[in-house]
Computed example of a mutant assay.
Amino acid sequence: MDIDSLRSFLAFVETGSFTRAAKQTHRTQSAISMQMKKLEEELGKILFTKEGRHLVLSHEGQQLASYAKRIVGLHDETINAIRTETAYPALHLGCPDDYAESILPVVIGLIRESLGRINIQVTCASSLLLRQGLDKGELHLAILTRSPNLEEGYLLKTDEGVWIGSKQHVLLEHRPLPIALFQSDCKFHSAALTGLMKNQIPYDLVSCSSSASAQKGMVRHGLAIGAMARSSLSEDLYELDETWLPPLPAIHIVLVPAITSHPALSDNAIKKISESFQNNANK
């Protein structure tokens, strides 16, 4: 059915008059009459009956009125949604796996708040690989870990590494001490191993992974203790506070744009996202 004809039909329903319907739809009365005739022909039903000198809706006309309102409403909603959708290409965002549950959702929320309903494609990998993705133009933006003495990107959060364990498994007395770490490009990896060696604590490096889920799984199943950012800690795991465990470094979690960033992401926009993240974290 023609949408314009349905609009004219609904104008009659609202006004009870072809004359007023014609004025509201900016058509002639004869044009309205032709539209109604085509609707009747298409449906094979009479939509109007006479009551005295007035036209009123037939039973089938009343049925159509209910459907027409929904059809026209959905049509207008669809047109409005598509027309107002930002015509930007997809934004490719990188994030280390250990920030995927805590940092990533907040950042995506702030991006959509700033840019509207933009399509965001997320790649989870280590900070090293994400930096390579930025350099190759494969990513527009990445959540990364940096040292506190560097100025890379826009600060989201200051954090520090902690040792983690499972509440169901006690491994701290085991020698060698079983540990699960992120891969060697992670700042906690070298700090953990160097610290254990300096403290003359024998260790067994059970696994290395770029996945926080993998490391947490090793800890949950009692195969090792782990080392990760405090903000990545899950409720079912806990922070180990034994003083003989070597301290892990402080880190900055930052938002880093590619040199050729997304067309919708100006430096000012990224700065505002960074500031909003910090403001939300301080509430």
Rank of each mutant, 00 (worst) to 15 (best):
N80S: 14
G195Q: 00
H54W: 09
L177V: 06
P246E: 04
D98K: 03
A68C: 12
I270H: 08
Q278R: 15
E113W: 02
L47F: 07
S209R: 00
D98I: 09
D204W: 13
G44N: 12
G94R: 02
I32N: 09
N80M: 02
M1K: 06
L139T: 04
P257F: 11
R146N: 14
I111R: 03
T243M: 04
C124D: 02
K157A: 05
G44W: 03
V106D: 03
S127D: 11
R27C: 01
K198T: 00
S58M: 06
V170C: 07
I118L: 14
D185Q: 13
S8E: 13
L104Q: 08
D98H: 07
G165R: 06
Q183V: 06
S210L: 03
K23A: 14
I71A: 09
H92A: 12
A21C: 14
S211G: 05
S166R: 07
F12R: 06
V256P: 05
D4S: 12
Y154S: 04
E14Q: 15
F12C: 08
I82G: 04
K167S: 15
I103H: 01
V170L: 08
R70V: 15
G137P: 04
L196Q: 01
Q121T: 13
V256Q: 14
S33Y: 12
A192S: 14
V219E: 09
W244Y: 15
D4W: 01
V122Q: 04
P105Y: 10
V162D: 02
Q215W: 01
R53N: 15
I108K: 15
K167Y: 12
E242T: 13
S8N: 07
Q215H: 13
T243D: 06
Q200T: 07
L265G: 07
L43N: 10
I273D: 07
Y88E: 09
P202W: 13
V56M: 12
L39D: 05
Q132S: 11
P246R: 09
K187L: 13
I143E: 02
G133M: 00
S114E: 15
E101T: 07
M228R: 05
M218P: 00
R230S: 07
I111A: 10
I273T: 02
R175G: 05
N280C: 06
A224Y: 03
P257T: 09
K157I: 12
R230W: 08
Y99I: 10
S166K: 07
S276Q: 15
Q132T: 11
I253N: 04
S266E: 11
D241L: 11
D204M: 11
N282V: 04
A192D: 01
P246N: 12
I164C: 08
E173R: 10
L240F: 08
F182W: 03
H221F: 05
C208A: 09
E14H: 11
Q35V: 00
I103M: 00
L57Y: 11
G222M: 11
S17M: 11
E235F: 09
L265K: 07
W163Y: 07
A68D: 04
A31Y: 10
G16P: 06
A87M: 09
K37M: 11
I82S: 14
N119S: 09
L248D: 06
A180Y: 00
D236S: 02
N268H: 10
A191H: 10
K272P: 01
A21K: 02
F48C: 06
T243S: 14
I164D: 02
E77W: 11
I46W: 05
L110H: 08
A229F: 05
S58C: 10
E60I: 03
L237Q: 04
P257S: 13
Q24V: 06
E239M: 08
T78R: 13
K271D: 15
